Simulated scan of single mutants.
Amino acid sequence: MSDKPARSRNRRGEGALLRTELITAASALLEDLDGQEALSLRAVARAAGIAPQSVYLHFADRRELLTAVYAVRFAELQRVLVDARDEIAETLPAERLSAICHAYVNYGIAHPGHYRVLFGTAGEPGWEPTAAQLPGLPTFGMLIDAAAACACADPRSTAACLWAAMHGLITLRQDRPSFPWPPLDALVRTLVEAHLAAAG
């Protein structure tokens, strides 16, 4: 496969455009590579059509680039969940939680590559951010807040269980497509109702 043609030089003031292109290139590579350890700055530069040394104008090292990739992808996921929640803001808390969970699972099923970047590579050895640097915490916080609004006794535990269950549903449906799965909406609805009943 031939390398991507060299890109034209950005005009003055367009450096942010190259940074975005590098993040996009790294994210696309992570969708296909075997974990983040397979990602190199040289490969990202090649995919973006620039000289390898140009990457360092925007990212000090590989970890900084990975952090930016995860931040962008988690922000994308969070926007999807916020939109789903706000679309039914006037309904009962349990329905808002259900909407968030449906949106989460639908995102994972519809965008398997992006989902793999978020949860198949983030946090592997070599990245290891501090808790304050975890880009997914605001998204997880949405689940906690939604569970708290449903008067769950331990909202954080309920949110963690919901996340684990949704992740399992997404990955199992991708890994075992031949299994006679019930309709996705029914599975998510059952998942949410069961957790709320146990957490009441």
Rank of each mutant, 00 (worst) to 15 (best):
L92I: 04
I23F: 01
R42F: 07
H102Q: 14
N106L: 10
S178K: 12
L18N: 06
L191M: 15
A164N: 13
V55L: 11
Q36I: 00
D185G: 11
A51P: 01
F140C: 07
E95R: 14
R62G: 05
A159E: 00
R46H: 11
G113C: 08
T139M: 10
A197L: 13
G13V: 00
R9S: 11
Q36R: 12
A197D: 12
I23T: 09
L92R: 15
P155E: 03
C150D: 00
D3G: 14
G136E: 09
L187V: 03
A153W: 00
A149C: 05
L77T: 08
H58V: 04
S178T: 14
R7C: 03
R19G: 09
D175G: 12
A45E: 06
T20L: 13
G126H: 07
H195R: 15
L33E: 10
R12M: 01
P93I: 01
R156D: 09
L187G: 04
E90V: 08
L81M: 14
L66M: 13
P155A: 01
L97E: 03
T20P: 04
S40N: 07
L92P: 02
A16M: 04
E37Y: 02
M166F: 03
Q174M: 11
L57T: 08
G126E: 04
L18W: 05
L118Q: 06
N10S: 12
Q78P: 00
F140H: 11
V192F: 02
S157Y: 03
A131F: 14
A68Y: 05
R46V: 08
L17E: 14
P138W: 02
I50H: 03
G136I: 07
R156G: 04
R62T: 05
L134Q: 12
S178L: 14
E128F: 03
T121A: 13
I109A: 03
L77C: 01
A103M: 07
L17T: 13
A186Y: 01
A198T: 09
P129H: 05
V55C: 10
E64L: 03
P182V: 08
Q36C: 07
I88Y: 08
S178D: 15
A103L: 03
Y115T: 00
S40D: 06
T20M: 10
D34Q: 15
R73M: 05
R156V: 10
I50A: 01
L30I: 06
A132T: 09
Y107D: 09
A160W: 01
A94S: 14
P138D: 06
L65C: 06
G113H: 09
R79L: 04
A148D: 11
V188Q: 00
T121W: 07
L143H: 05
R189Y: 03
A48N: 03
A89N: 04
A51Q: 14
A26I: 02
A110G: 07
A99S: 13
E37W: 10
Q53H: 15
A164F: 07
A16K: 11
I144W: 03
T20G: 14
A149P: 01
H111A: 11
D154S: 10
A198K: 10
V82H: 09
P180Q: 06
R176Q: 15
T24F: 00
P138V: 01
A151N: 15
D3Q: 12
T139G: 02
L77W: 05
L191D: 09
A198I: 02
L29R: 13
R19E: 15
V105F: 07
L137A: 14
